[in-house]
Design a binder for these strands. Structure first.
Length: 164
DNA sequence: CTGTTGATTGTTGTA
DNA sequence: TACAACAATCAACAG
């Protein structure tokens, strides 16, 4: 039930009227032309109306991976602080402060995430092709693939740490 | 009670 | 090629 639909449910004024942060963060990406500055940039969980049978959610980026760990640490040092934004800001700064070597493990995970994501995309890809006949999600004829293809492969990555 | 926002950056996807 | 929107989180707030 979206209280205010997708507009400004809670604080629309804040985001629509004043929001320096948006300018800068989205500025890079969205600003540019005009497209629809009013459009929501961040999904807001309320998807428009796109029903995706198996929409592969984007795995956390290297930054997110780092954030996950960072959040814990941050909370340990700032248990009082319960603002997710705080961790985001702190994490962002720290992330930039991290050395490539530190990001290496995170990037490694990110690389792996892409590999798996790519797999999921294949399934999703099929859907994209036959978007026309969108009957109803999985009816009964679509369950062809996905039969038994699950190999637990080891995730070993050679560690080449050096560089730098 | 549920939905939404806030904030970070990165990554992927689509036009 | 370039933009655009989304990915997690956690709590608080609003309808």
């Amino acid at each position: 039930m979206r209280p205010t639909k997708g507009k400004g449910p809670v604080k629309k004024d804040t985001k629509e009227a004043l929001k320096p942060v948006e300018d800068k963060r989205v500025g890079k990406r969205k600003a540019v032309s005009n497209v629809s500055k009013s459009s929501k940039r961040q999904a807001t969980k309320a998807k428009p109306a796109k029903k995706d049978p198996n929409k592969p959610k984007r795995p956390p980026s290297a930054f997110f991976v780092f954030l996950e760990e960072f959040r814990k640490t941050y909370k340990l040092e700032h248990p009082n602080n319960k603002a997710v934004s705080a961790v985001g800001k702190a994490g962002g700064e720290k992330w930039k402060s991290l050395s490539p070597a530190e990001k290496a493990p995170y990037e490694a995970k990110a690389a792996k995430r892409k590999t798996e994501y790519e797999k999921v995309m294949t399934s999703y890809n099929k859907k994209q092709e036959s978007v026309d006949d969108e009957n109803d999600e999985e009816s009964d004829k679509s369950k062809s693939e996905v039969s038994g293809e699950d190999d637990e492969k080891s995730e070993e990555e050679d560690e080449d740490d050096d560089d730098e």
